[in-house]
Simulated scan of single mutants.
Amino acid sequence: MKFICLLFTALFCLPTYAAQLTLELGDTRRSWQTADLLNHPATQEVRIVDDVSYKRDMTYRAIPVATLLEGLSPEDHVQAVALDGFAAELNVAPLLNQHGAKAWLAIEDPEQPWPPLGKGKPSAGPFYLVWTDPQAGHISPEQWPFQVARFKRQQPVAERFPAMRPDPSLAADAPANQGFVVFQKHCLACHRLNGAGDAQFGPDLNIPYNPTEYFGKAFLTRYIRDPQSLRQWPQARMPGFSSEVLTEAELAQLIEYLQHMATRKVVTPERQP
């Protein structure tokens, strides 16, 4: 009987395995183990009010993201790549902030695992990008990637994916160009456009059809605000974008960008009719 109890303990009561975070910051590559980050002198206890993923206040052991991105400049750009391939596009400038909205990498302790994100779902670990005072920096939910495994320095989106760019003859402050910035912040983590991008979750927003071609503006606005108000199904993954997350002006700019890109479809040989 004692042997059976010991065997049960060995099989079912082991702590969660520690994880590894990889940093690919241009010429340098470094890996951090969970224990190393938990014991880092910059790591501290951080309280997050109204956590985006858990929908309640949470407390984490976390390290300032700026500490991990040492050597990068505010003009740089990184991807936070999750275990499932989700890739959040992040400008480095907000990640380096020491005042106002401040980015932290929460570290899941294998001895004290976080709760699951939902029934049958894993936790937000092993690493989760969270923010204190996010309202000060107008931080969107897409800037809270969870299950992070890697930070990778990248070229800016417009350079990596020229097929996404608006007409270069447009003025820099044209609504379509402003909408392109909004698209990068709120849409690019889940959607491609003209076949360009790294996202694997949502449909391409221009090929074969742009949503402005099959939605009237009023219904497209409603869909972006509350997708389930137009299309309901249990596996729906697109979140709604409230006016606190996406202002009325930003939403109008995003639609201007989509309307503009509907005139700039990229047709590759495999897409020829």
Rank of each mutant, 00 (worst) to 15 (best):
D51A: 11
V182R: 02
Q135P: 01
P273C: 14
L117H: 02
K102M: 14
E248Y: 07
Y17D: 10
V92W: 01
W233Y: 15
W144Q: 09
H191S: 11
Q184H: 01
Q259N: 12
P134Y: 00
Y60P: 08
H99D: 15
M261I: 04
N210L: 08
F201T: 12
L90M: 15
N210I: 07
A82N: 02
A136S: 14
P74D: 02
N206W: 08
H186M: 13
L37P: 01
S123A: 15
T43I: 08
A174L: 06
E75C: 04
K2H: 10
H191N: 12
E89G: 02
L68M: 02
A93F: 00
P115L: 15
A88K: 01
D27W: 04
L69C: 06
V92A: 07
C13N: 04
L230M: 11
V130C: 11
L83F: 10
H40W: 08
V182Q: 05
E142I: 06
V148H: 05
L23D: 00
W131N: 12
F146L: 08
G85F: 05
H191Q: 11
A10G: 12
G195M: 05
F12V: 09
P166M: 13
Q33N: 08
G195A: 06
A189N: 04
M58C: 10
A218G: 03
M238K: 03
L230F: 13
V49N: 11
Q184E: 14
Q228R: 10
A163G: 12
D57H: 09
Q235D: 15
Y257V: 13
E89W: 04
L254H: 07
A106R: 10
V130G: 09
A174E: 10
T268V: 13
C13T: 09
T268W: 05
F215N: 12
S73I: 03
R56P: 06
